[in-house]
């Protein structure tokens, strides 16, 4: 196999590869992501009407969204929503919940400890780890340079 044959082949692969339906993906991501955010906004509005402060309302809102996502994941609906909406369904906190619930369900056969327990964080773990690390650094910078909150 000569170097040029390889390079030529890689060029064909690049030019002949079927294109992702990017325009459709973007529209779907906007609609699905927007809709999930809207549902979050409605839930938050309900909590605000109950007399919670905007600050206090965000946690129960997140919990309700996560609960809904867990239910949808359990019923086998959330993966279809993601297939359609891509990042529109993965980026909201409901996608984060899906990423924890799905492996937990999946690895039931491997037992409650090493299956469910250990796999809960396989997909969500990186987000938590790097989110915490980034927040620590940002917090440190703000502390050191005395930036106001």
């Amino acid at each position: 196999m000569s170097q040029s044959a390889q390079a030529r082949y890689q060029y064909w692969v690049k030019t002949m590869r079927p294109k992702k339906p990017v325009a459709m993906n973007l529209v779907a991501a906007f609609l699905v992501g927007g809709a999930i955010s809207e549902v979050g906004q409605i839930i938050q509005w309900v909590f605000l009407r109950q007399g919670l402060s905007p600050e206090k309302a965000s946690t129960p809102t997140a919990i309700v969204l996560i609960g809904l996502s867990a239910l949808f994941t359990g019923l086998g609906w959330y993966d279809r929503l993601t297939k359609l909406g891509g990042m529109g369904a993965s980026l909201p906190i409901t996608g984060f919940a899906n990423a924890m619930v799905a492996p937990a369900m999946e690895f039931r056969a491997e037992g409650l400890v090493l299956g469910v327990g250990a796999r809960l964080f396989t997909v969500a773990g990186p987000v938590l780890a790097w989110g915490m690390a980034a927040a620590f650094v940002v917090g440190l910078v703000r502390l050191v340079f005395g930036v106001a909150i």
Partner: peptide, 13 residues
């Protein structure tokens, strides 16, 4: 790849 119920988009390839 991924757990069955984890949502993700498939590629044309």
């Amino acid at each position: 790849r991924y757990p069955v119920e984890l949502g993700n988009q498939r590629y044309p390839t």
